[in-house]
Design a protein around this nucleic acid. Structure first.
Lengths: 207, 207
DNA sequence: GATATACGCTACGACTCGTAGCGAAAGAGT
DNA sequence: ACTCTTTCGCTACGAGTCGTAGCGTATATC
């Protein structure tokens, strides 16, 4: 995407431009959608020439992948001392991110294009989806160290559990906020955490 | 969309064309994505002139809404005698529909465009999302009549429950199949049903 | 028949993608 | 100080698309 290591000779790239372009991309995507997003418009918003965009990213697809990936890297898993609190915190954080119109349109538009372009789909998985599974792994590990969850007995089972938990959390929150368009209120988050904890914590362990 | 009631005079519309156009739209959307979908291509696939498309739908957006809505109306809630079986059946049905590339690209592309266009979003909610909540309502009613679930005590609570269940089921399945790209195997469906049943059925009722 | 609509075809203006060429700017190496 | 290399902004271009308009023709009702 960007040159592996900064070029040694010649005029250096404007360091501020990358951030400005990615922010402009998310902004434009939110207002205009994938179909309405034009490279010329992004260039004007970012205050650079259109050729500068193509000098740094090879196509619209790659530009949008970068713009969305940058946004989602903000997520963090807190350790608040209980599994329920951790779940509610990360869901709230995720929901807060998804409540920004920039992120909404950007994420969905990208997923949509990815269904047709296998290469883009791979890039989305690598750059956006897989990195976020770290949240589930961190939350599980913390809960296990606190004795809230049993330790893993089988590597394969544990991996499958991480996948299904990730699908459920990400999918449900995304669906509620982006498709149904309902906000994730504290009450809703609490209900959802209860739903998640029941099968995880076993009989009598939830609160 | 189509004239409120058939015109009384003049040449009637070709009745077969509507179906052919909608099918061609889904097919083209699957192959080319939202960005690659062209009205001219759809017209060729359907064997009609481009002007015929615009005579029946005012824009690409409206055409795709109609194409996807038609596809999702196929879903039905079976009554198999137990809540678990009903859930697994409807999830499998939903997953089967979403495994078709036509539906995948169509749904996501539409959701993405809907995030920017409030009017389109309303049309999507009315024509696609809300009608499917009937599945949750039917499943709950059947389970209540079998004594598997308690009867509703509060109208408002029941409505919120329907919403959260719908978000969770639709969101998780959509996310797994469309975003992660993993198939919904019988094992996965069974695990997911367990996850859903735990909070619903209370202690000791699941299997 | 007269009327009214749908149909297929072709052409059109406005717009976007991604590329190419230009002169100028801003650094690194000698 | 001078050269070399890369980036920058600008303008223009070919190919392709959207959505519309006009034409002649087909197929129905009154």
């Amino acid at each position: 995407m960007t040159p592996p290591s900064g070029p040694r000779k010649g005029r250096p790239r404007n360091a501020d431009a990358d951030g400005a372009i990615l922010a402009a991309t998310r902004e434009a995507l939110a207002e205009l959608g994938w179909g309405g997003l034009t490279m010329g418009d992004v260039a004007v918003r970012a205050g650079v020439a259109k050729t500068t965009l193509y000098r740094r990213w090879p196509s619209k697809n790659e530009l949008v992948v970068a713009a969305v990936a940058e946004q989602l890297d903000e997520l963090e898993m807190a350790d608040l001392g209980s599994l329920r609190a951790d779940i509610e915190a990360v869901v709230a954080q995720f929901a807060s991110l998804l409540s920004a119109p920039e992120t909404q349109a950007a994420l969905l538009a990208l997923f949509a294009e990815a269904t047709r372009d296998p290469l883009l789909r791979r890039r989305v998985r690598e750059a956006i989806i897989e990195p976020q599974k770290r949240l589930v792994l961190a939350g599980r590990a913390a809960a296990q160290s606190r004795g809230e969850l049993p330790l893993d007995t089988c590597e394969e089972t544990a991996s499958a559990a991480v996948d299904i938990i990730f699908d459920t959390v990400a999918g449900t929150v995304v669906h509620r906020m982006l498709v149904s368009g309902e906000p994730a209120t504290p009450d809703w988050i609490s209900s959802f955490a209860t739903l998640l904890l029941a099968p995880l914590a076993g009989i009598g362990a939830g609160t």
